[in-house]
Amino acid sequence: MLKINQVFKSFGEKDILKEVSFEAHSGEIIGLVAPNGTGKSTLLNIIMNFLTPDAGEVTILDQYGYRSKKQEIKMHEYLSFLPELNDLYAELSGYEHMKLYAKMWKGKVTSIDDIIESLNMTHYVKKPVGTYSLGMRQRLAFAMLLAADTEIMLMDEVMNGLDPDNVTLLTNELIELKRRGKVILIASHLLDNLDLYANRILFFRDGHILLETREGEVDKINQSYIKIHLNKPKYDELKAVKDFPENTQYIAGKIVAIPLKSLEKIEINDWIQFFIDQNILNVTIGQIGTAEWYEEFYNQ
Rank of each mutant, 00 (worst) to 15 (best):
P259R: 06
P259N: 01
P259Q: 04
P259Y: 00
P259W: 05
K261I: 12
K261Y: 09
K261M: 07
S262W: 00
L263Y: 07
L263T: 03
E264S: 09
E264R: 09
K265R: 11
K265T: 08
K265E: 13
I266F: 10
E267R: 08
I268S: 05
N269F: 09
N269P: 02
N269Q: 08
N269S: 11
D270S: 10
D270H: 05
D270C: 00
D270N: 11
W271K: 00
W271Y: 06
I272R: 06
I272Y: 01
Q273I: 02
Q273D: 08
Q273S: 10
F275N: 00
F275C: 04
I276Y: 05
Q278N: 14
N279T: 07
N279H: 12
N279D: 12
N279P: 04
N279M: 07
N279G: 00
I280D: 03
I280H: 05
L281T: 11
L281H: 10
L281N: 09
L281K: 07
N282V: 02
N282I: 02
N282K: 04
V283N: 02
I285H: 13
I285C: 12
I285R: 12
I285Y: 11
G286I: 13
G286N: 13
G286K: 11
Q287G: 13
Q287K: 15
I288N: 12
I288M: 15
I288W: 10
G289K: 15
G289F: 09
G289E: 15
T290R: 10
T290D: 07
T290A: 14
A291Q: 15
A291L: 13
A291N: 15
E292Q: 15
E292L: 14
E292D: 14
W293M: 13
W293T: 05
W293L: 14
W293C: 07
